[in-house]
């Protein structure tokens, strides 16, 4: 597998936040993706530590992975949180983002719908979004 190029990342092409899931499609950039065992790994920003992993399907350089939103409300941070999304196998961990096109300020331009997870006395909203660095994160926040 070797050491990945510093600039390798997983480039997003489509995000489908539908039917209680967030489906992400894209391709591995800057690295030969021939390895087995790719997963989409979500890591909570605060508190640091919790991670979730889902199988990713690779076809050549293309990847596809699906995250069920009901998993995303972390007990360590029940009210709100941010998951940073990676594509990983073995020692390799690629940030998932959309950096190869010509659109900057994606957070205001490529906007995705929020989905709702019913919890106790209200709903938790779950929404994928691009960060200021054009990386993919998934936010959740509770609203009574």
């Amino acid at each position: 597998m070797g050491v990945p190029a510093v600039n390798a990342h997983a480039e997003v092409e489509e995000i489908w936040p539908e039917e209680g899931r967030v489906r992400v499609l894209g391709f591995v950039h800057g690295l030969d993706a021939a390895a087995e065992g790719w997963q989409m790994v979500l890591s909570l920003r605060e508190p640091r530590g919790p991670e979730l992993a889902y199988p990713a399907v690779l076809s050549g350089q293309a990847f596809e992975a699906t995250v069920p939103i009901a998993d995303l409300v972390a007990p360590q941070a029940p009210d709100k949180g941010v998951w940073d999304v990676h594509l990983a196998t073995g020692e390799v961990r690629l940030r998932v983002g959309r950096r190869l096109d010509d659109i900057r300020d994606k957070s205001t331009i490529m906007v995705f719908p929020a989905q709702l997870v019913p919890i106790d006395d209200g709903f938790t909203h779950v929404r994928p979004r691009y960060t200021v660095n054009e990386n993919l994160s998934i936010d959740y926040w509770h609203a009574a």
């Binding site: 995000i15 489908w16 300020d105 331009i109």
Partner: peptide, 17 residues
């Protein structure tokens, strides 16, 4: 924006400002 969501166009239509 709501119409884009209803039509499932959020991967194809961008309001650029």
């Amino acid at each position: 924006r709501e119409q884009i969501e209803e039509l499932r166009l959020y991967n194809n239509v961008f309001m650029m400002g």
